[in-house]
């Protein structure tokens, strides 16, 4: 019925809210912004400003929460302690184990900074996840990479580090001919790549979906029954996607932090 109805209607039934009455499918151009202002050679666009806002929000909140720590926490300190306990007990102690406390500040910063940056994707007035700019997850993944590789070399020795990666013990000898290069490539080259692409692509895809359905809601809008219906359905999808993104954002921040802990743990204690 839907098909025959839309075929019977002239194309103008969908309204004409965009030039030439076509659907302007959003592409990668929605992730690029013009500079708002620039200081010397550094241009500041929307993503850059949001990055600074995110840093200020995270630093500001936790500074406020722990400015006068009390033995019985109240208000903001409670929230801060729950967050800290979640990272320390749930990630650092569980995954890294012995010696994990040293890395709590790194993991804590990663989790909350990435979460705030992701959350901007559905925050009204900003509506742009900073982590969907590829350079930012790359920088994060690079920090992690430059943490666990030197750490592994320091703990296991230069040769020991590569030996533990390339020759997992307890396998038949001929298998190592295939396994050693695969393990080396997957751990040294592919690992940092997937680490950042995972975060980036999730945020990128989520933002693109939300923008597509938002544009569609306006594209379908017209003062006809079918136009209003199509527009309303599209708008409901936007709301559902926003709720879904809320989940994905927290999950991706958690997974990034969890993988950081797993990599550090692998560098600290070689597999037996």
């Amino acid at each position: 019925m839907g098909l025959s109805l839309s075929a019977a209607l002239p194309s103008s039934a969908w309204g004409c809210n965009f030039p030439e009455c076509t659907f302007p499918a959003p592409g990668t151009e929605i992730f690029f912004f013009d500079n708002v202002f620039s200081i010397g050679p550094f241009g500041f666009n929307k993503a850059m400003i949001q990055l600074f806002i995110g840093a200020i929000v995270v630093i500001g909140f936790f500074w406020f929460a722990f400015r006068k720590p009390k033995i019985v926490p109240r208000g903001a300190q409670n929230v801060g302690e729950v967050g800290y306990g979640f990272i320390r007990d749930g990630i650092a102690r569980d995954v890294i184990g012995k010696g994990g406390e040293r890395f709590v500040p790194l993991l804590f910063t990663f989790f909350f900074f990435i979460w705030v940056l992701n959350f901007m994707g559905i925050f009204p007035t900003l509506v742009f996840p900073v982590t969907s700019v590829f350079a930012i997850p790359v920088a994060f993944a690079l920090i992690v990479y430059l943490t666990w590789v030197p750490l592994g070399i320091a703990k296991q020795g230069g040769w020991g580090f590569f030996k533990n990666i390339m020759f997992p013990p307890g396998l038949p000898k001929p298998l190592y001919i295939i396994l050693a290069p695969i393990e080396l490539i997957s751990n040294i080259l592919v690992r940092p790549f997937t680490h950042c692409v995972r975060l980036f692509a999730n945020m990128f895809a989520g933002h693109l979906l939300i923008v597509t359905f938002t544009v569609a809601a306006w594209y379908l809008f017209s003062p006809t029954i079918i136009g209003l219906l199509g527009s309303a359905v599209s708008f409901v999808v936007v709301l559902a996607l926003t709720a879904f993104e809320l989940l994905i954002q927290a999950l991706q921040a958690y997974i990034f932090t969890l993988l950081t802990a797993v990599y550090i743990s692998g560098a600290l204690h070689a597999e037996h």
């Binding site: 997937t194 692409v197 995972r198 692509a201 895809a205 958690y254 997974i255 969890l258 993988l259």
Partner: peptide, 14 residues
Amino acid sequence: MLLGFALAEALALI
């Protein structure tokens, strides 16, 4: 579970 999910999902995202 989430760790395995993240590793499998990376392929789809690439």
